[in-house]
Amino acid sequence: MIRTALLVAGKDLRIELRSRVLLWQVVPFGVMALLLSGLALGPANAGHSSAGPGLFYLVVLLVALLMINRSQAVESTPGTRSSVATLGLDPAGVFLGKALALATELWLTGLVLLAGAVLFLHTALHGALVALPSIVVTLAALAAAGTLYGALTAGGGGAATLLPVLALPAFAPLLIAGERSFSAALGGGALWEWWVIIAVALAAYLAIGILLYGVLEES
């Protein structure tokens, strides 16, 4: 399972590195969304607003949806799907590999967006650094849930529009916990209770994915 996961993750990351979709399309979109958020708050309010963590996670949600669709699209050409299916890869390994690749992409994008939040939303740098570990875990949980929901909607004609509708209820607790954790880091409050929620969600989505990804692929 681990061998398959590393193989699939390496393949997905290599495809992303070669296509540069993340670098030239997704990251600029996220940075522009943060910039617009900063402009909407206005220069006088940006530094004092408590909206920074929420806006950060709103933009993370938008870029995550793009990246999940992209992650599934590379598998969805009918010929590719059939010929890769005949490799008989362990579905649990495929799930972990795709989730790992998506998490890596989200971590890299998250770093850029965090810098953007400091720059455009005047989020305190020290608070952002304190929040970094919780952001890493939240993005990993988003990647696991996103890989599951991406597989659920892949192949359908309306995959791009169906994914947000189906995935948002699953993402909402993660986004809320992530935002609360980020806010607590900025305000010097306790972080651990939000960490527990995110860590449990990550473990739950990984377990569900390992158990059910094969069923989703077959369906």
Partner: peptide
Amino acid sequence: RVGWLGHEGSFYDDL
């Protein structure tokens, strides 16, 4: 145990 070659193209285009 089987090998499949489809007419649509069977590979990852960016690799």
